[in-house]
């Protein structure tokens, strides 16, 4: 059985290339049909916010990469609820369907994977 990876993405889409390079790890796993899930945490939750306008900064729209994830077979997306809440985003619309997890559920999630990659 293929070994699984939990990718924890913690960078805002506005902090340079880091968030995009984290997503590329997920897209590569998908291209090779390997099991990978993503947990958005800390400023990484900002990647999921709808109606952002990266073009105002001549920046590529990361949400296009996010929306490509299901086509690459990456379907398990999670988001840390407390990170949304502490940023005032508890009720916000997200660009993708992501399961909202509390701390205990995140603890459980980490234990389910062979590898954790935090970027």
């Amino acid at each position: 059985m293929a070994k699984s990876v939990l990718l924890i993405s913690r960078q805002a889409p506005w902090a340079g290339i880091a968030a995009a390079e984290a997503l590329d790890i997920a897209l590569a796993a998908g291209a090779f049909d390997l099991p990978l899930s993503i947990l958005f945490m800390d400023d990484g939750v900002l990647q999921l916010l709808d109606q952002q306008q990266p073009l105002a900064l001549q920046q590529k729209d990361l949400s296009a990469n996010l929306q490509a994830l299901p086509m690459f077979g990456i379907e398990q997306l999670y988001v840390a609820q407390h990170c949304l809440t502490e940023r005032g985003l508890a009720e916000s619309t997200l660009v993708m369907t992501a399961e909202r997890l509390d701390d205990q559920q995140i603890q459980q999630l980490i234990r389910e994977y062979d590898y954790v990659v935090t970027l």
Partner: peptide, 18 residues
Amino acid sequence: SGLGQLHDGLQQAERLIS
């Protein structure tokens, strides 16, 4: 090489330390 080489390594290995 590509990021596939990271995943290929992980499939062969038992620990990743970043």
